[in-house]
């Protein structure tokens, strides 16, 4: 059972306070985040909902150690990495975070198995690549190169690659954005499965409100701020989602 923000006994795995992010694009300043407080609790599944340009990806990138905030703090298990050096961020990503992107980002020269092994070779406590692929039901296509896999299959390999290190947090940025509905649901099922089976704290970014149904919490982001948080009493299975 995931811990929830309502339960004061559980501590947040990842906690961000007063996050702001200002991009400088030429002479224009873009305020992507304008003071966001956000906490992520162990085992929960959160869906970040927002229109494009709302700042949800920026938040995800900062939470995942891909980017640093302009101001504010991010604590992971009590340690602040809002001003961490590149090496520390790399270690944080390597040891604790799994990423899934809209465009899969598989290495074309490596097979599905090898794409996963890429991570298990450097992670401190990985599962076997074949187990990871089994979790996304791709054990039969382990030796295929990305170019030999469909979009949905490629995204599932990306998920397997993300979770093979047994990350504390799985961050998915529009994982179904490039897929049709049926394939998208297969991918969401895989994510749901990881969250349930391994208890991996999961954040999914989407602009598809329907996906919110499978989350413990739905965080609405708008114009660089958290506009509201909905808590689902019961999560919908991914296969029952429809859009």
């Amino acid at each position: 059972m995931p811990s929830t923000p309502n339960d004061p006994t559980t501590k947040a795995t990842l906690e961000a306070k007063g996050l702001t992010k200002v991009y400088r694009s030429g002479e224009v300043e873009v305020h992507a985040l304008r003071g966001v407080d956000f906490a992520l609790y162990r085992h929960e599944m959160v869906v970040l909902l927002g229109a494009s340009g709302s700042g949800k990806s920026t938040l995800l990138n900062i939470l995942g150690g891909l980017d640093l905030p302009t101001d504010g703090s991010v604590h992971f298990e009590g340690k602040d990495f809002s001003a961490a050096e590149d090496g520390a961020l790399t270690r944080f990503r390597r040891d604790h975070v799994g990423f899934v992107f809209q465009f899969y980002n598989l290495i074309p020269s490596l097979t599905a198995y090898e794409n996963v092994a890429l991570v298990t070779e450097i992670a401190p406590n990985p599962i076997l690549p074949e187990e990871a692929l089994k979790l996304v039901s791709l054990e039969g296509r382990m030796n295929h190169f990305p170019a030999q896999l469909s979009g949905g299959e490629q995204q599932r390999v990306a998920i397997a690659r993300a979770i093979a290190k047994q990350p504390d947090i799985l961050l998915c940025d529009e994982p179904t954005g490039a897929l049709d509905k049926q394939t998208g649901i297969l991918v969401l099922e895989a994510i749901e499965n990881i969250n349930r089976e391994l208890g991996t704290t999961t954040v999914v970014i989407t602009h598809n409100t329907v996906v919110g149904g499978m989350a413990d919490r739905i965080v609405h982001i708008s114009d660089g701020l958290i506009a509201g948080i909905d808590i689902n009493k019961s999560r919908l299975p991914a296969k029952d989602l429809d859009w």
């Binding site: 995942g64 891909l66 590149d86 090496g87 790399t90 270690r91 990503r93 390597r94 040891d95 975070v97 990423f99 980002n105 598989l106 290495i107 074309p108 890429l118 991570v119 450097i122 992670a123 690659r161 290190k165």
Partner: peptide, 16 residues
Amino acid sequence: GRELATLRVLGFSRGE
């Protein structure tokens, strides 16, 4: 570039 960025995200260091 994309491949290398992916590796960085996966936790590979600059040296790697």
